[in-house]
């Protein structure tokens, strides 16, 4: 019987610890969880203008505009894919927002269809 009691006590403590940790982080993490699905804290929801800058027929950089000041100092990562080749780069958004040009690691041939992924991290 003592063995059963010991196991039960240990299990109770472990579970209680988990529950305590759960409760301790619930108010903070619960809010974060909600934001992750409906209102993840972003610096902007605006439409961002994008212009591909060419050298010949190759895209060498992408200029992203319409960045609000709320995105100032954020890191902007750009990835461009022309369905056969991809390249990327990153740059820091000016403190006042505006526009920023991200140079691609390697030029990508301009094609009929291209995908550009933008991710602003921070500020």
């Amino acid at each position: 019987m003592s063995s059963i009691r010991n196991v039960a006590v240990v299990a109770f403590i472990v579970v209680l610890g988990g529950a305590t940790a759960f409760a301790a982080s619930l108010s903070f993490a619960g809010g974060s969880l909600g934001m992750a699905s409906t209102s993840t804290p972003r610096c902007t929801n605006a439409g961002l203008g994008q212009i591909q800058n060419l050298s010949g027929s190759n895209v060498v950089s992408v200029t992203v505009s319409n960045l609000p000041a709320a995105c100032g100092n954020a890191t902007l990562q750009v990835s461009l894919n022309n369905t056969s080749t991809s390249s990327g780069g990153s740059a820091t958004v000016p403190a006042a927002g505006g526009s920023v040009t991200v140079t691609l690691g390697t030029p990508v041939a301009m094609a009929t269809t291209e995908e550009i992924d933008l991710v602003l991290t921070g500020p």
Partner: peptide, 29 residues
């Protein structure tokens, strides 16, 4: 109990990174 904690941690990391993802399709003639 452990799974619940892991789930909370995962949620915390996602939200705290402040990611703003956009995808763009460029069609060119």
């Amino acid at each position: 109990a452990l799974a619940a904690q892991v789930g909370l941690i995962a949620g915390l990391n996602l939200a705290s990174q402040g990611l703003t993802p956009y995808r763009t399709c460029v069609l060119t003639a």
